[in-house]
Structures are given as structure tokens and as C-alpha cells.
Write a protein that binds this DNA or RNA. Structure first.
Lengths: 199, 199
DNA sequence: GTCTATATGGCGATAGAC
DNA sequence: GTCTATCGCCATATAGAC
């Protein structure tokens, strides 16, 4: 098998294991088994566990972020931006529901990975806030916009990150009810924000 | 020193270490050092690492939950309940800001600890939702209340859990700005919810 | 590139003297 | 109750043949 193919199989296997076990809980043996190779080969392609984790982490972030950044740059109303961003988040989480919990978990482990990634991709919240403040016509100031952004992130991300508990406690682990709930949320989040900020 | 005192010192040390490193990342040696004893003593008071972690986890939960439960049982309007619960959460997080991240982290490790704790303390969301639906006078149905509860939890918990990233990205790690932001949030969350649901 | 075998170190846990 | 010393295991990582 070619090196590139093997490397990809390792990255996929590593992603699956890190996702469930976290960095400390993951075992190189389990990653090797899942990739169908032996431990020595892991270290041939990725010298250390740390290096392997970093590659996995950045690959996941690259799935996640470009969508959001692109939306923010479009020249549309704040109401439309919110609509597109909420849809983007929720559609993305439908497919990759494990990512919010993964990021929150490893954030406490290495908070700087995440912020360094964001900065290296040009994310600059103070600038985003300033632009939004100038763009729109209502009387929101910078402080209101800070809260607006955090509110949208909270409403989109938390329910997915906490889904194991919410699903069990509220819906007694019913897949059907949970799916219905998540499908409803796109519209619910938009209505909450529009009503709250009169957009 | 008396056994009870030593045990308490171990629990405090263990809490601090588990909080930062998580279950898998925590080291019994580090806990012992922080408690000012040696490793053998840890196993004298708590037979295994797992047993020690469980005691720490339940102690933390006991700080956290009785407040919320008591509020839900009071005979007041839904608007007043929301006000008290948001205040309780945010006041609590002011002192114990590490708890949301800790719970979310160990939730993925052992989702059942958390739900079992909730159930053993009489938390029963379907019943809470039913009671709220019958209580109040507006036209909210059960589905609306499910989302209302998740929305409040999201707005209160997520910003605290994600604080390392938010603080760095939005406020460039300024303690003053972050404190101001958190102080504002109590009122912001209530206004968002009241406006969104016309309460 | 791929394998087996092994090095090396750190971990949780225990034995046993005091 | 408290200590020192150590066991036994399992983790990451490497050496070296093919």
C-alpha cells in the first residue's frame, strides 16, 4: 500500500479513538489495531503520539471553520448572516456531532491549540465586532454584539456538546425524539435571536 | 493529624488535580504531593484512583445541584423561576468557574455518572416540563418548554465552559473586560429569554 | 515499508517495618 | 496512621532483520 493511503488510514483511526477517549485516554495500540497495522508503523509515519494528535486536531478544525469564516465576509444584512451561520453550524453538527464535545474536552487540556488555530486562520473577533457595529442600522453597540455572538455560539454548540446527557434526561434516549428536537432547533434559535434583538 | 482532616486535604488536592488534568491525565503522585503526603497514604484512605475520583465528583455535584432543585419546586411564576435560576447559576459559576468544563469533559468519559447522579437526586425533566406546561398561562406547549430549558442551560453554561477561548479571542485575556462581560450576562440572558418568549 | 522483539520509563497499587 | 521500598503492568518509543 502507498504511504499516503496508509497515512490516511492512520489519521482516520486516530481521529475515531481520540474522539472517544481523549488524548490521555487514547492508546497507540488501539489506533494501530483500528488502522490494521502495528504499533511500529505508527511511529514510522508519525514520530510521537503528540504529533499524531496535532495532525488529527488540525484536520478536524479544517472541516469546521472555513464555512463560518466565509459567511462572515459576505455583504448581507446581520439577520441574513445569522440565518446562514446558524444553518451552517447545525447542518455541520448533524454530520459531525462529536466535534463540539471533542473540542471542549481538549480545550481545557491545551487552550492554546484552539486559539492559535483561529488566529492563524485570520479570525479576529474585535474586528468582526467593529465591522458588525458599523454595518447595521439598529442601535446595538459593541457590548451588545459581544453578547449576541456568544449567545448564538451557546445556543448552537452547547446542546450538541451536552447531547449524551440531554438525550438521556429529557428524551429517555429516544433517537426519534432527539432527531426531532435537533431538526427544530435551527428555527428555534433564529426566532429566539430575532425576537430578542428585534431583527 | 486526624483521619478526617487528612481525608479532606486529599479530597481538596484531588479535586484541584482532576479539575485541570481530567481523570486520565491526573497522577496519584501529584495529588499526594499537593496534599502533603505520600502515595501510600492515598491508597490507605481511598483504595483506588477510581474511588477517589468518584468521591471528588459527587462532592462537586453536591455544591452545584441542590440550589437549582429547590428553586424549581417553589410556587412562583415561570418568569420568576427563570430569574432565580439564572442568578443562581451565574453566582455559582462566579465562584466555581471550573465546574462546567470539568463536567463536560468527564461527561464524554463516563456519561452515566452524571445522569445517575441527577436521577438519584430526583431530577426528572419530563415531569418538570409537564408541571411548567400546566403552571403557566401563555400558550407554550411541551416542545416549546424543552427548547426553553435547553436555551437557558446553553446561555448560562457554555460561556463559562468555553471561557478560556472566549476570554482570549474576544477580550485578549483582559481580566477586567471578562469580569465585566460575565457581570453583564445575568441581565442579558434574562432579557433574551423574556423577549424571545414574551414573558 | 513492514514486521518482531525489546528497550525504557512511569503508572497504580502493595508489602511490611515502625 | 505513616513511611520506604518495590512489585507488576502497561504505555510510548526504538532497534534491527527482512
Amino acid at each position: 500500500m502507498s504511504g499516503a493511503q496508509t497515512k490516511l488510514m492512520i489519521l482516520n483511526a486516530a481521529r475515531d479513538v481520540f474522539m472517544v477517549k481523549g488524548y490521555d485516554g487514547a492508546r497507540m495500540q488501539e489506533i494501530a489495531d483500528r488502522a490494521g497495522i502495528n504499533k511500529a508503523m505508527l511511529h514510522y509515519y508519525f514520530h510521537t503520539k503528540y504529533e499524531l494528535f496535532q495532525e488529527v486536531f488540525y484536520h478536524i478544525m479544517d472541516l469546521f471553520f472555513p464555512v463560518i469564516l466565509k459567511t462572515l465576509e459576505e455583504t448581507i444584512s446581520i439577520r441574513e448572516k445569522i440565518s446562514i451561520i446558524v444553518d451552517s453550524y447545525m447542518n455541520f453538527f448533524k454530520q459531525y456531532s462529536f466535534i463540539p464535545a471533542f473540542i471542549m474536552r481538549e480545550m481545557t487540556h491545551q487552550p492554546h491549540w484552539f486559539t492559535q488555530y483561529l488566529k492563524s486562520h485570520g479570525v479576529n473577533p474585535p474586528e468582526i465586532i467593529k465591522n458588525l457595529e458599523e454595518d447595521q442600522l439598529s442601535e446595538m453597540d459593541a457590548k451588545d454584539i459581544e453578547h449576541l455572538i456568544v449567545n448564538i455560539l451557546s445556543l448552537c454548540i452547547f446542546p450538541i456538546a451536552a447531547s449524551p446527557v440531554l438525550k438521556e434526561m429529557i428524551f429517555e434516549n429516544s433517537d426519534i425524539d432527539w432527531k426531532r428536537f435537533i431538526d427544530e432547533r435551527k428555527q428555534v434559535i433564529k426566532e429566539v435571536i430575532y425576537n430578542a434583538y428585534k431583527l
